[in-house]
Design a protein around this nucleic acid. Structure first.
Lengths: 249, 249
DNA sequence: CGCAAGATTGACGGAGTTCAAGCCGAGTGG
DNA sequence: CCACTCGGCTTGAACTCCGTCAATCTTGCG
């Protein structure tokens, strides 16, 4: 169980393995957002030694529900979706992850959900045991992880409210505002907001069908609340009213 | 921020304050299930010194969303519901908590949801700062808390799948099996299972209306899958088929 | 330019909601 | 001991939002 530093043989699904790490964690653009935020130089070096970087292309599976959960991940670029399936194929996307998000927080022996790249995605990958050891030596990092878990729990509850009690229009408005908020957090455009996922993914996230999502977009457009731009961009023409719709009817 | 041991002035909402702690944590019946599980005697003593016990009657508020989150809790007896509201009164119950469950995991300055006693409930209460200090001295306890958070996250995702993609019948079947599983875990009857919450609470947990919940119970009864007994007990007459229904259509 | 995958739109149907009575059972008081 | 009451549960009937099925349109890309 000791961390053998320098060890780099590694394979996660079939992502590209660029074993050469040119600049190391000190240059990581999303560090301030991640679990690594509280680390000093020594800590970063330790992380750097156990981390490997992988790239996943759109649609590529990162892991599947039920698989042994050998790795944990940090999203350093791109968008990831996590989801659960029913036996007959019905799917619920339980979250979209963006730069800086932590992936794999579960503490079960096997993954309890599947993860797949939405856009080209870069991940920083840790073996479970090695990260555990690091956590034992860095209480701040563990504390940070606990805070992240708390945040995710709060977000999950917000999403339950959406799925259980909001109308289609409220769901779509909430979703667009969420995307905008996350874009801002990660330094991307918050107003003409980029919507990297397709209608099917949005539907499976919001507990709707693609048709309803599409109709709702159209309705919001006709009411002048949003504008659908090329390249999957959406302008939030009336942010205030969108907010009003999102929080309640 | 130092923990002043022995300090006991305390008030959480308006629960009874039985300041005299006769037996202390060593006699706590649910300890093995809680965040206190990994503690040795010294740790238990420390917990005992900062914990106060409170009792809440059915319907009594434990805390409200938006309030400063000064306390964290361990449920030692009874059932608690946590929920979020929309401005127009629509409610989503995001979870029911039973003996041994931890309440208040959020790490925000204010509670992000409300909590209310469903049955007569006993809570073990900690001031935020004091528990934090204890956690800093007990890495195992912090680790345990992280594991608990992970479990809750997995449960939340399961519930999102239910809310977003399951039919009314599947939701009710899932709910009964959940209650049964939790009853078993806490040493209560798992087959004629006690359903302590009313139809409105069940509806707000499952994203349905009371009428639909009632109709679905009736349907399951007519199909011979359950029997509705007096005193809010439900017999799971055909557990296998209930399971089949719960996991998918 | 032409194709294929995704997005939109339309028509229709159904699962679940809404509104409105009844029913049942536990607590209360005569 | 029993009628009364009140809240919660059940049942019925009509409606509605969203899902389903199917056709058309748009867009990105070779």
């Amino acid at each position: 169980m000791k961390a053998r530093t320098g060890q780099r043989e590694f394979s996660v699904a079939s992502g590209d393995n660029d074993a050469a790490i040119p600049p190391a964690c000190t240059l990581c653009g999303v560090r301030s957002l991640t679990v690594c935020a509280p680390l000093d130089n020594a800590g970063l070096t330790a992380v750097d030694e156990i981390a490997t970087r992988h790239t996943f292309e759109p649609g590529q599976t990162i892991f599947d529900e039920g698989e042994p959960s050998q790795h944990l991940f940090n999203v350093t670029d791109g968008t990831v979706k996590i989801y659960k399936l029913l036996a007959d194929g019905r799917r619920q996307i339980t979250g979209f992850l963006f730069s800086g998000d932590f992936l794999g927080l579960a503490s079960e022996a096997t993954y309890t959900y599947s993860a797949e790249a939405v856009t080209t995605t870069k991940l920083c990958c840790f073996r479970h045991g090695q990260l555990d050891e690091l956590l034992q030596r860095s209480p701040q990092m563990e504390r940070r992880l606990l805070a992240i878990a708390g945040h995710e729990l709060a977000e999950a509850q917000e999403q339950m409210l959406l799925l259980g009690r909001k109308t289609a229009k409220e769901r779509v408005a909430s979703f667009l505002l969420l995307l905008s908020r996350r874009a801002k957090q990660t330094g991307r455009s918050e107003d003409p907001v980029h919507v990297p996922m397709n209608r099917t993914d949005i539907a499976d996230y919001l507990g709707l069908t693609t048709e309803t999502v599409s109709r709702t977009f159209t309705k919001l457009k006709l009411e002048g609340l949003i504008r659908l731009l090329p390249k999957s961009m959406v302008a939030l023409a009336d942010r205030q009213q969108l907010s009003d719709i999102a929080e309640t009817s």
